[in-house]
């Protein structure tokens, strides 16, 4: 068995080599993505000029909240966005065949083959914004809160990955799975741009129990800033420390669903 990291390194090197042949487009991609998010943060700023707080969250707190979403989404997307967006096409055309004749798990091979460098831009933005938030909110970093945040980022990344893998795996059951992916990672994820306490109960429940995006940023950030939870019950305080567990469970479930899908794959026989 080849060492997976060594193999991934090999794939990554090959990918970078082909991408850097077009250096301008490589850095251009990253720059354009960075600009998109700078604009988005500016739009928040405009919004907060009208309303100084949003359900008790000030501008920089909402920026921090959004930033957690962006950082975890981008980290997960470096690896999963490209292959998962492609899965519908691969399954429909039968090109997925080639992932099933290699001595490597098909999901791993999909991820290995396509790194998505464009998300480096998102990560640079998220890192910079994190520094700005630290200054503006006068966050005092301690070993405790650094560890907490890192575990939340890890959990959040797993949640983001779990959701996109699950959505994309629908390709094995339905024809237009691309729509399922887009709704999950764009439309529904947009809900967590703001504190979910501003929404009605049903949306809060949806984001907690069905598509658990709330564990990506809302619950951890609420604990981080000592905010009152949406529907603050004893149980919901536990949510703030559950991101990693939710992420691990969701990711495992997603891998399981993907494998179930592979068993149904009919190689363009339909």
């Amino acid at each position: 068995m080849p060492h997976p990291f060594r193999l991934y390194g090999r794939f990554l090197r090959t990918y970078m080599k082909t991408q850097l042949e077009y250096r301008f487009s490589f850095f251009g991609d990253i720059f354009v993505n960075m600009m998109t998010f700078v604009t988005l943060y500016l739009s928040f700023w405009v919004l907060f000029n009208t309303f100084p707080t949003m359900n008790g969250w000030n501008y920089w707190e909402v920026v921090f909240l959004y930033n957690l979403n962006l950082l975890t989404y981008a980290t997960s997307s470096l690896f999963f966005w490209g292959p998962m967006k492609q899965l519908e096409h691969l399954v429909r055309s039968g090109e997925f065949d080639q992932f099933l004749v290699r001595p490597l798990d098909p999901l791993k091979l999909l991820v290995f083959r396509q790194f998505q460098h464009t998300f480096i831009g998102h990560i640079i933005v998220a890192g910079t914004v994190m520094v700005l938030c630290t200054i503006q909110l006068e966050i005092h970093w301690t070993t405790g809160n650094i560890a907490f945040l890192l575990l939340c980022v890890l959990g959040g990344t797993l949640i983001q990955a779990g959701i996109i893998i699950t959505a994309a795996s629908s390709a094995f059951w339905v024809v237009r799975s691309g729509t399922v992916v887009d709704i999950s990672i764009y439309a529904i994820r947009n809900f967590i741009n703001y504190p979910i306490s501003i929404y009605g109960r049903s949306i809060q429940l949806l984001l907690t129990f069905v598509i658990p995006y709330a564990f990506v940023n809302y619950y951890p950030a609420a604990a981080f800033f000592g905010k009152d939870h949406a529907g603050s019950s004893e149980l919901s305080h536990l949510y703030s420390y559950s991101s990693l567990a939710v992420g691990a469970a969701l990711f495992a479930a997603a891998v399981w669903i993907f494998r179930r899908g592979v068993m149904r794959y009919d190689s363009a026989g339909s």
């Binding site: 080849p2 060594r6 090999r10 290699r102 001595p103 490597l104």
Partner: peptide
């Protein structure tokens, strides 16, 4: 490059 990848993969 493909052959190198195969070498590593197998």
């Amino acid at each position: 490059e493909t052959f190198e990848l195969m070498k590593c993969m197998y």
